[in-house]
Design a protein around this nucleic acid. Structure first.
Lengths: 154, 154
DNA sequence: GATAATTACCCACAATTCACCACAATCTTA
DNA sequence: TAAGATTGTGGTGAATTGTGGGTAATTATC
């Protein structure tokens, strides 16, 4: 038994260069290169960070959105939020992807980019933003956090 | 009848070398090598130590995380806490795994590494930290400890 | 249509990581 | 008890990885 190829774990600190490129951890690249053409889709996260999906995961989201009725205004806004910032991009020969300026400003990325494996997707953070968000969640919901740990950690 | 192959017991004192490698007790390796899965996933323990899961156990956790909805901020923080420090690694030819720097500092590992079999997983401790934590737990919860013993020890 | 600006693609290099080898200490077995 | 096998620890060289920059191709602007 081996690890699921599409499972992302670990944290990596890289730099965002002057052209808006970030490295994708080699371990993440390997997972994908065999199946597809190491292609990712980057979009706005629910938190102030960037979510990067491998193409297989993104297709699932795309299908869900496709099935959403466009009658409701909320639905349309929801679709807009995700779709308008979704940008497919492939790794260059050095294993980097280029982040669009609008995503960079959304995640408030500066020189340092912290990359987190989040099981089925990848997150790109400004390290200081991440600290604040997690600290806030922990303070507000320590009980639920402990309940989750009780249930899942073995 | 033999012991369950995935059951880890015993304690072993090894050294953490300058490259962050620790030996995995031969007995633990044997348990897993037959199925060709001498692969482990190391992550933060609930205590200040490292938890090392055989791949089969880790998959259970991974599946739980995958099924958690990403709508709630606490959920995302929870996934982050576990996933970001999770590092899969396989034994090298000498039977060692490499521990990531962030896990080393989390467990405050120095030169000595104490490895404990914990039934379904392995713990890696700085010996002096373990003493303190266990002593504290015993002082705080001696009653519950005795109750557990009453219930389980036969 | 010519020029400027942006983007995509490629190369180079330093630093790190990984796979392998060697060896001493311990344990097994005959 | 002796010989062989196994186990724990250190180190070395080759391959990989992360980062910066340069040139060609593409797009945009006037």
């Amino acid at each position: 038994m081996t690890l699921n190829k599409d499972t992302f774990t670990g944290e990596y600190q890289y730099s965002l260069d002057s052209k808006g490129r970030v490295n994708i951890p080699a371990k993440f690249r390997q997972s994908l290169s065999k199946k597809n053409q190491n292609t990712f889709v980057a979009t706005r996260g629910q938190d102030p960070c960037i979510w990067v999906y491998p193409i297989s995961e993104w297709k699932k989201i795309e299908d869900e959105l496709r099935n959403l009725s466009s009658v409701s205004g909320v639905h349309r806004t929801f679709i807009r939020q995700i779709a308008r910032s979704a940008t497919p991009s492939t790794c260059d020969k050095q294993g980097r992807i280029t982040i669009s300026p609008s995503l960079i400003s959304y995640a408030q990325l500066d020189k340092d980019a912290l990359i987190l494996g989040m099981i089925n997707k990848i997150e790109i953070w400004n390290p200081s933003t991440l600290d604040k968000v997690d600290k806030k969640n922990i303070n507000n919901d320590i009980n639920e956090l402990n309940a989750l740990a009780d249930k899942i950690v073995i």
